[in-house]
Every structure is written in C-alpha cells, then in structure tokens.
Deep mutational scan, measured.
Amino acid sequence: MTYRVRIENADGEVVTIEISADELREKGLTLEELLPPNARIVEVEEVEP
C-alpha cells in the first residue's frame, strides 16, 4: 500500500509526498515522525501501488 501525503510546512507551503507502507515499516517510523519541525499533515490518501 502507498500513501499520498499532503504536508504543510512552517512557511505555509503545501507539498505532496508518496511513501509506501513497506518503507515506513523498514524505517520503523510513523508518518508523523517523518515530518520536519513545525510541519503538519493536511491530508493522507491511500493509493494503489
């Protein structure tokens, strides 16, 4: 499974990243732990691999 994640950074700019569930598991991280300081998740969407 892959996630498309929209993130708002500290400057108010919204960027989109895609990350797979396998990648998260391998790194032992959650989506929140990948965020840079002062950023927030705006939207998470599951996409087909």
Rank of each mutant, 00 (worst) to 15 (best):
K27V: 04
V42G: 01
R4T: 02
N38W: 10
E18K: 05
E13M: 12
L34K: 03
V14Q: 10
L29D: 02
E43Q: 12
P37C: 05
T2L: 15
T16F: 09
V42T: 04
P37S: 08
I19T: 02
R4F: 10
I41Q: 01
E45G: 04
D22G: 09
E18L: 15
R40E: 03
R25A: 09
K27D: 02
R6Y: 10
A21D: 07
I17E: 01
P36I: 03
G28S: 05
L34N: 02
G28A: 05
R6K: 15
V5F: 05
Y3H: 02
D11F: 11
T2Q: 08
I17L: 12
K27F: 08
V14S: 07
I19H: 01
L34V: 10
L29C: 11
I19C: 03
V42I: 15
V44Q: 02
D22R: 12
E8P: 01
E43L: 14
T16R: 03
G28H: 08
V5S: 00
D22M: 13
P37K: 09
A39Q: 04
T16K: 03
P49H: 13
L29V: 11
N9F: 15
P37M: 08
L29M: 12
P49N: 13
A39F: 15
V15H: 10
P37T: 06
I17Y: 12
P37R: 08
P36W: 06
A39P: 02
A39W: 15
E46V: 15
E32Q: 12
V44D: 01
G12T: 01
E33Q: 14
T30L: 05
K27R: 11
M1G: 06
A39D: 02
I19E: 00
V42F: 05
I41G: 01
E46C: 12
E23T: 10
V14H: 09
E48Q: 14
L35M: 07
V47C: 07
I19Y: 06
V44W: 10
I17H: 02
E23S: 08
G28R: 07
D22P: 03
L31R: 01
P37V: 07
R4N: 03
A21E: 10
S20Q: 07
V44P: 01
A10N: 08
E32L: 12
L35S: 01
A21T: 06
P49M: 13
T2N: 11
V42A: 02
I17P: 00
E13N: 11
Y3P: 01
S20R: 10
L31M: 07
D11N: 12
R25I: 11
N9M: 15
V15E: 10
E26A: 13
